[in-house]
Design a binder for these strands. Sequence first.
DNA 1: TCTGTATCGGACCGTTAGGTCCAATAGAGA
DNA 2: TCTCTATTGGACCTAACGGTCCGATACAGA
Lengths: 208, 208
Amino acid sequence: MSTDPAPAPRSHSRTRKGSRTKQRILRTAADLFARQGYHATGLSELGDAVGLGRGALYHHITNKEQLLYEISIEHVQEMVDFGEELLSSPLGVEERFRRMSRKLMRVIADNRDEWTVYFREADSLSGERRERVVELRSRFEDLWRQILDEGETAGLFHHGDSLAVKAVLGMHNYSYLWIDPEGDLSPEEIADRFCDILLHGIMTAPQR
Amino acid sequence: MSTDPAPAPRSHSRTRKGSRTKQRILRTAADLFARQGYHATGLSELGDAVGLGRGALYHHITNKEQLLYEISIEHVQEMVDFGEELLSSPLGVEERFRRMSRKLMRVIADNRDEWTVYFREADSLSGERRERVVELRSRFEDLWRQILDEGETAGLFHHGDSLAVKAVLGMHNYSYLWIDPEGDLSPEEIADRFCDILLHGIMTAPQR
DNA sequence: TCTGTATCGGACCGTTAGGTCCAATAGAGA
DNA sequence: TCTCTATTGGACCTAACGGTCCGATACAGA
C-alpha cells in the first residue's frame, strides 16, 4: 500500500518506479538525515554520498521534502498495516499486546535511521504531507488504544486509558535511541521484557 | 550551578549577565526552535520575534549554537541537580523513585519548548558543547539506574537493569510530546499513575 | 550640559541552500 | 550503424543563511 510492494522481477531497465537507484537514494538520505538532521543535510552532500550529481539526483526524486516524507512514513505505515491485521485476528488481548510490541521493536531495530528521521524530523513537513504523517501517527496510537480498551472491558487491565497508551508508546518509541540490532537481546526479547514490565510492573511484591 | 541562580535584586542597569533581554531571547528562541526546528529558524526571524535587529541581537548572544546549548542544558541540569540531592537523602527506594518521577514530569510540563529543543535538536551541537550535553544526559540516566539498582539490591525490584532504565526513561521523556499543563491531571498526578504502572503493571491479576 | 558606555538597526560579507536547465553520454533495439 | 530514450554532471539561478561592522541613539553619572 505504501510503496512498491517489492518482488515483481524487474527487467534490467530501471524505468519502473522503485529502481535500485531510488532505493539507494532513500537509504542514504535516511542515514544522513538521521546522523546530521534534515535541514543540516544538503542535496549536494546527498548526491556525493550516493555518487550522483545534482542534476542526476533530481532525475530520481521530486524534491527534498518528498524524500523526507517517503522516509518518514514507510515503516509507520508498515506498523499500521500490521496492527490492523492483528486487530482483525481472533487472538486474545494479551497476545495482541505482546505481538504488537514484538513487531514494533523488530521494525524499529531493523530501521533505526528511518525511525530517527520520523521521530525527529517529520514535523518539518508541511501541507498535505504533514497531515498524512500526523494522521498515520494517530492511527497507530489508536491501535494501541483499542488493545488497551479491550483489555479494560474484559476486566483484564486497569489503566486502559489514554495515559496508559502514552506510557506504552513512550517506552517503545524511545528505543530508537538505544536499541542495538547486534546486542545481546533480540528485539523480540526486549519486547517481551517490556511487556512483562508493563503488564506486571517491576515490583516483586505487589501490594494490591 | 547552571545559570544565574536568580534573585540578586538587579539594578535598573542591564549590564549584568542574565538580563531581561537575554532571558526574553532565550524563551523566544526556545519557542521558535521547538516549533520550527533549530536549523529552520533564522536569526533574523528570531530578532524580529524578539523585537531586535540582528546587530542588537548579537549584542546579547555569542552565536546561534551557544543559544541552542543554553536552552538544551538548562532543565536537564536542573534534573541532575535534583536527582543528586535526592540520592543523598535518607528516603526509601520507592519514595525516591516516585519523587524523581514527579519532579521530571513537573519540569517537562513547565518547560515544554526547552525539552523539545533538548530532545530533538541537541544532536546538532558540536565539539565541547555536544560533549557536555551527552555527559549530562548520561548522568541523568545514571541517577535512574542507581535508584533501580538500589531497589534490586534491596530485593524490592526485579528488572533492575539497563532495560528497565530505558523503560522508565522512555515513558517519561516521551511526555514532552503530549503533556498539557492545562490538562485535567497535574504533572504530579500523571507521574503517580506512571509510577503505579511501572511498579505494579496494568494487569489486574498478576499471575506471579 | 557634557561624556562615556550600553544598546541598537541595518547594510554588508562570503557561503551555501534548493532547484532548474541543458548539453553530453550511454546503451538497447532495429 | 543509426536512433531514441534514460541518465548524467555541473554551471547557473535566486534566496537565505550566520556573522561582522559601524554609525546612530539612549541614557546614567558628573
